[in-house]
Each structure stands twice: as structure tokens, then as C-alpha cells.
Amino acid sequence: MSTPVLSVDDLRTQFPTDRGVVRAVDGVSLSIEPGEIVGLVGESGSGKSVLAESVLGIVEEPGEIAGGDIRFDGRSLLEMTDEERQSIRGGRMSMIFQDPMNSLNPTLTVGEQIAETVRLHQDTGESVTLSAELKRKIVGAAKNGEAWRRAIEMLESVQIPEPEARADDFPHQFSGGMRQRAMIAMALACEPDLVIADEPTTALDVTIQAQILEELEELKDEFDTAILLITHDLAVVAETCDRVNVMYAGEIVERAETRELFSNPEHPYTQGLIASTPQLENPDATLEPIEGNVPDLIDIEYACHFAPRCPEAERECFERPPEFRSVGDDHEAACLRRGPAGDRL
């Protein structure tokens, strides 16, 4: 195997609060190979977005990375200077968020925003000094450069009709689906090695979601980009990802190749999540909700975070932390009640 684009190793991200320390990410490891779509699926409060923020280096104060390592293309992001990290972010590593309106600049035209990213991260021979940027902003976008041409090209590749005309629009003139596409165009403009997509289609209608997911896959093939797809939606993961990590209360509880995971879910949480998801083709199956709620992540006292809601939990589950065990081909679950017969509780 080649060097992973991203490898996260025993990452711990914490938030000190008045009531105690919130361990939002509590010892998570995962890796992504070039050209691969890896899913990170979990409910709200699972820590999946904090994991993304940790990788991007944008964890909000007073949160901090308290342990572990994050390596991008073999180099530790945590040991880099701010300038080094900044040059990777937006260039070789970019992101797509749930709400494009919050991540697009409302005062710049869509074309100009994409062109700006290109100028900053690729050597187009165009000045990126403050005065040059200001001039572009006041006088209007520089439309004869390589960067602007690239912006149009990207808008076209994410299927925005009339890219030349729409590039002059401001974000608010775009519909929700088009904004999300503009953000994908921006994220891919510098041909990044890794894209982190946090709930990229959650705010969209199913018809638009289907378009966007299809485009993400096409673009991945075209640019050989690795994608970390973070979502709560099992079906979205099932349709787009090569491999899946299931996250619960700060920990990864199960990981496998996508087809394997959904045909043989092993961890009781994954099983519960699938059983509680309504499915079109299986309407007669009663939904079996997981009892209780996602726990407060402050000072969890029990070893397996899922134990209090787990229908199979034994006393030992509350006392001994579960390690990953092989439960199938390239398939691991962190549960004391799973794994080879001799180890199973």
C-alpha cells in the first residue's frame, strides 16, 4: 500500500468546561489512501465534526488536541508551523461544509472566490499581495488571468450552467444546490489530495443530493482525490464510500469495507443504527430504536461508551475498555461481546 494521504493516530481532542472535560474525540485512529472515499458515520454528539476540525486545525478554543498524531502525506500536521499548515489547507487539503452560505464570502463573486483560492495556492504568476487583492476587489475581478479561467472551468465541471455568466454572481444569487456545487468547485480548484466533506448534502433535497453525490464521485475519479465523507446518513455512506468508520461518543466502534459493513454489521451500535433507520424497501419491518440518548461526554465513567444503551451489555463491558477485534475480512469491531470465540465475553 502507498502512503496514506491522511492518517490519524490515537487522536484525543478535549474541551475543558466548568463541569469537567468533554472528551469529544477519545482515541481515534483512521487512515485514507489516495483516491478513496472513506465514510465517518455517527449521530450528533459522536465527535465526528470535532475530528474533522482537528484535522483541519480549526478546533475552537478552549478545545485542544491532547494526544495522538495527525499525519498528512506522512508529515505530522501537529508539528508544522501555522504557515505550513495554512499552505496545505485550501490547497492540497480542502473542505466542504454543510452550510455553504457560512463558508462562502457573501461580498465576493463566486468566480472571484475560486480564483482567489487558485492564486493563493498555485503559482499562476498573479500577484497575491494585499494591494493586488484589494485592487481586484475594488476595481473588479481580474478576468484575464489563469486563475479566473480555472474558476470558470471548475464551475463548468460541477455542472453550473452558463459558468461565464454565473461566475459574476454573488453567493446569495445561487440556489442551495448551486452554492454547494460552487463550494465543491472551490474545494477542488487546486486539485487537492484530500477533501474533508462534513455533511455536504444534509441541507439539500434528495434530488439535489443525488446530483451532488454523483458529481463528487466523478470528480474523485477525475482528480484521484481522497475524500473523508462525514455524515449521519447511513444510506449516503452506503452509496458512496469505499470504507466506513462508525463513530459513537468519541470513539470509532466499527470499521470495514462498505459492502461488508452493511451486510454483516457486528457492533451492537451499528446494528441498532441500521435497525432504527427507515428503509424504502422494507416498510413492514418495525423500527427498533436504540433506547436512551447519546451520553454526555463529560467524564464518562464506563469503559465501553455504548454499554448503558447496549442490549447485550454485561457487567464487564462497564469495566474493561473494548479493543478492536477482527470480526470478518478486513472488518473490526470494538466490542467485548464480539470477535473470536475464545475472546468473546
Binding site: 454523483e214 446518513d233 444510506a235 449516503v236 452506503a238 452493511f262 428503509q279 422494507n282
Partner: peptide, 16 residues
């Protein structure tokens, strides 16, 4: 357009 967990349930997609 609805994504499916079960791959056998996926239909030929009509993308609007």
C-alpha cells in the same frame, strides 16, 4: 434519488 443502504434495492437513477 433516495439513497439505499441495501445495494440490491438501488434502482437505475433518474437524476433530475
Amino acid at each position: 434519488a433516495v439513497p439505499r443502504i441495501d445495494p440490491s434495492a438501488r434502482t437505475d437513477r433518474v437524476v433530475l
